[in-house]
Structure formats: C-alpha cells, structure tokens
C-alpha cells in the first residue's frame, strides 16, 4: 500500500493532473450555472497532518457549507465541495435572485438547501466523470450530503479511512474563483481524498510505477 509518506514527486504530479482536469470541468459547469467566468487555481496536492487539513479552508472553527459525497467504484474516496458561509450566501443570492437569504435560512429552507446540494452534485459529477475518463477507472458518486458546520467537524468525517493507516492525509485541493467582480462571490474548494488503497489503483491505471 502507498502510504502518504511514500508518495513521490511524480505521484504528486499525477494527482495534481487529476485535480486539474476534474476541477477544470467543474469550473465550466459552475460558470454555466451562474453565467459568470470562473477561474481555477493550479491544483495542489497536500500532504497534511490531520490538524492541518482544516487550515486549507480557514481553520477548525470556520463555519462552512460543505457538500460531501462518497466516491465508490474502482478507486473509492471522499469528496468535498466547500464554501465559507458568506460565499454560500452570496452564491445563493446570485443563483436565485433572492436577497433575503442569510446564514440561518440556508439549511432551513428547502429551496436554498437543494440549490446548494444540486450545485455540489453537478460540480462533483463533472469532476468525477473527467477523473474517470482520464484514468479509465469506474467511479460513481453517492448522493451528496450538505451540511453547515465547523470545518474541523466536517472534514474529520473524510479522514476516517486514511486515519487507519496514517497520521497524514493526501488531499487534492483545487480552488475555484470568480474571475471578476468587486465582491468575493465564489471561492470554493474541491477536496478529493482517495482512500488509502485507491492510490495504487489510480497509478496503476495510468501505468505509473509505484516505486521511485
């Protein structure tokens, strides 16, 4: 098994490319949803200690709206689409044209909840299908689950698999950002956390040797 500590630079580049292709497609999908240009940052592959994972999205107690889904199939894993609470509110206002939306109403209101959940679903779906095309692996997303809570509490749910083999997580992080606009609209993070056993399958599917 490839543990996080054993990951080479070549392996990291491959994982970055997965983030690149996946989030690129997701950015296009998001751009279509909000009718705005969306930029994608160069993906990063982070080897982080568990307590550092939440720093990616602003700290353990930062309140975020997260869509979480389980990836099943040949290379299972966990996937998050994360917006800070302010970004989620502003995104939903843009999407629905309803300016009364606020932090508390996101989860309480069926319409905003399902709009956000569906966004996560569309973005994760386009991310995964390009990941699947690139590697030839069969991957399918579970029903997405949306929650609003502390980043630490949410992200630790995605670390359970990896925590059984290591104190580190390998995270493919890609940031999506609105290209223009005075206010910060969307600045979302895609986090893909393959299960420990999935790395070998991903590298094998692309003909990359496990050692060196």
């Amino acid at each position: 098994m490839i543990t996080p500590e054993r990951l080479s630079d070549l392996h990291k580049d491959i994982l970055k490319e997965i983030g690149n292709i996946g989030a690129g497609h997701a950015a296009t999908a998001l751009s279509g949803l909000v009718n705005k240009a969306i930029d994608m940052h160069v993906p990063s592959v982070k080897l982080a200690r568990f307590h550092e994972v939440t720093d990616l999205v602003g700290g353990e107690e930062t309140v975020v709206a997260a869509t979480f889904l389980r990836v099943t199939g040949d290379a299972p894993g966990n996937m998050f689409f994360i917006l800070t609470i302010d970004e989620a509110v502003s995104y939903l206002k843009d999407l629905t044209g309803d300016n009364r939306i606020d932090e508390e109403s996101i989860l309480a209101c069926d319409m905003t909840r399902s709009a956000l959940q569906e966004t996560g679903n569309i973005l994760a779906g386009s991310y995964l299908s390009s990941f699947s095309d690139f590697t030839g692996l069969h991957l399918s997303p579970s029903v997405p689950h949306l929650t609003v809570d502390m980043a630490g509490a949410i992200l630790s749910a995605g670390l359970v698999e990896m925590s059984q083999v290591s104190d580190y997580a390998i995270i493919i992080d890609t940031q999506l950002k609105e290209s223009e606009g005075e206010r910060t609209g969307i600045d979302g993070h895609f986090l893909l956390l393959p299960d420990p056993d999935s790395f070998e399958k991903i590298f094998y599917s692309l003909g990359v040797p496990l050692d060196e």
């Binding site: 307590h51 809570d149 630490g152 992200l155 630790s156 749910a157 359970v160 925590s163 104190d167």
Partner: peptide, 21 residues
C-alpha cells in the same frame, strides 16, 4: 489537537475545537 491529549494544572483550561465524529 486531533489525535492528541494534553494535561492541565490548576487554573488552566483545556480546549479542543471542531469535534465531529
């Protein structure tokens, strides 16, 4: 921190953030 423990003397506060599962 996560996966960690700490001890406290009198007048100290122990804190841990973002407990999920």
């Amino acid at each position: 921190k996560i996966s960690d423990y700490q001890l406290a003397q009198p007048s100290q506060i122990l804190k841990t953030t973002g407990l999920g599962s």
